[in-house]
Design a protein around this nucleic acid. Sequence first.
RNA 1: GAGGCUAUGGUGUAGUGGCAGCACAACAGGUUGUGGCCCUGUUAGCAGGGGUUCAAGUCCCCUUAGUCUCCCCA
Length: 433
Amino acid sequence: MKKIKKTGKSDKKPKKELFQSPRGMADILPVQQPWWDKLIGIGQELAGLYDFGRIETPILEFAGIFEKSLGEATEVLEKQMFIVKTKGGDRLAMRPETTASVMRAYFQHHLSYGQQPFKVYSFGPMFRYEHPQAGRFRQFHQFNFDIIGDTDPLYDAQIILLFWRFLQLLKIPGLTPQVNTVGCRVCRQHYLRRLKEYYGKLKNKICKDCQRRLEINPLRLFDCKEEQCLPLKAAAPNMLDNLCQACNSHFRAVLEHLEENKFPYEPNPFLVRGLDYYSRTFFEIFGGSEKTAIAAGGRYDYLSEMIGPRLVPAVGGALGMERVIEIIKSESLFIFKAPVKIYFITIGEQAKKCGLRVMEELRHAGVKIAESLGKDSLKAQLGAADKMKAKLVLIFGQKEVFEETIIIRDMASGAQENIALSRVVEEVKKRLR
RNA sequence: GAGGCUAUGGUGUAGUGGCAGCACAACAGGUUGUGGCCCUGUUAGCAGGGGUUCAAGUCCCCUUAGUCUCCCCA
């Protein structure tokens, strides 16, 4: 362990370059875990209450799954997928999202023959080759809820209410949920034509980006923040006014269910979703002081047809875990109490050897023990115990080994007592109460 | 993919082109097996690579990383 001392400053030490985690991919260290545990814990609790089962799908999937499902105009597809070529020649993609994977699993395991709807949740890492910035990473985590096999607008509402509840339990401030609809294939096409017509006439009034958007993805015109484009939005044709009969009543039903639950949504006719498989209802929930998008989702009735044998309706959503954690951290919304610690001190070789056995015994009995076997002096070990705010310290030295006793010390009062080694588990448990 | 800003020990920070300092943390001591305070010591740094210069942490270029805006998105 001892480091070799440098002979002098004049030495040209060849600098060894340290490895770093890949760009946009972060380590989640022990000090950060309590937040993750909290988030996952609440998610799983809700999953239980709403009767969602857990599903885990592979991080790698055939690239075709995502290529077929995401839509041609989306950036996610164009250049953001991490592609892996196997030795056998398969093109696998690191999942940029899980919706398609879940749907794939649904067909692969014939889950449509079980009870419907099929309700599942999942969480884990997603990968998108992006330019990292605030709240955006190349590896990031999502918590998903999906309901497959039912068209009822009740389920649209349930998903939205579920994510809302999730974020409320996390005490996220400034939550603003927005809801909109993209209609079905028929009325969306119709609407897009009207939208293109409208902006086509104004082509020379809109910014360069918007002219490009008009060709590729006209809905994205609504996202533009350029001054010249903003005022044109208000008079633009509105999806709501162009819905077909069925889509209109579906959307109205969703809103009614939300209202019955006193859900404070904001209808936003200019809210836009990027992915092609969405149909009808979709939502996005913003929160935190920056009002970032932290959860989003919607109905995706068409996905099943894109990657599966037939049409199966579905609705779901995803929560951006890093974004949520960033908010609850910065607002200090949860204070985590350090667990009560017991520190085990050994003095001398003999005691170390026997001590390991005693610690095993305590741990088997469910007592949490900290120790640093590398330290030798009692002083240093007591210092360490103090620094980690240990409540109790067990001192085990040469003499105690011989006498088959152990010293138990209360760190707050400094009082200590010599007890029989055979009684240590019992005594420690008593003092913890 | 486009652009702006930034980079000094583990962390936080000083440093008119002229000897890289401070604080915290970590580690070890301050005489036998008793913590917090205090004292002493040790470890550890100019992100990497080029260039200008008698001399570069400091000026210039490239790379890398971080951060932010756009694009896009959770």
